[in-house]
């Protein structure tokens, strides 16, 4: 109850920290998008954890069960995942264009090129 009840949320926070670190510390643009994905997943897990009831079952109605986990977060996250992949595809296509324009996908090299212009 006491420590275990927060374990899930702390786990979410650790994942979020990893994603956040990748996002701000790594210079590679593809890596940054991967970091963004990790960050995203941590938020998904946070929502789904909030909807879970111990001893409950998946929200598909059936006469054998009476306790269901909350369906609302599931719906929100379901759409969020698909939108997430669409946006990361958009991000990756931006990376491809940056590679074609600058010849590199490292952030500091791009900044140098911009300054030397």
């Amino acid at each position: 109850m006491s420590a275990l009840s927060f374990l899930n949320y702390w786990f979410v926070i650790i994942l979020m920290m990893v994603g956040f670190y990748v996002l701000i510390a790594q210079g590679n643009l593809v890596k940054k998008i991967v970091g963004l994905n990790i960050f995203q997943t941590s938020v998904f897990i946070l929502y789904i954890s909030a909807g879970k009831i111990t001893g409950g079952t998946a929200p598909i109605l059936d006469t054998q069960w009476s306790v269901y986990s909350n369906p609302l977060p599931h719906v929100l996250i379901l759409t969020a995942i698909v939108v997430g992949v669409a946006t990361s595809a958009l991000g990756l296509s931006l990376v491809v264009r940056i590679k074609e324009a600058y010849g590199t996908i490292e952030e500091d090299e791009i900044a140098q090129m911009d300054e030397s212009l």
């Binding site: 994905n37 997943t41 079952t57 269901y68 986990s69 992949v85």
Partner: peptide, 14 residues
């Protein structure tokens, strides 16, 4: 965590 629909989507998409 009982979110079968979400798991399905994540497996297919992710």
């Amino acid at each position: 965590l009982d979110a079968v629909d979400v798991a399905f989507t994540e497996a297919a998409v992710g």
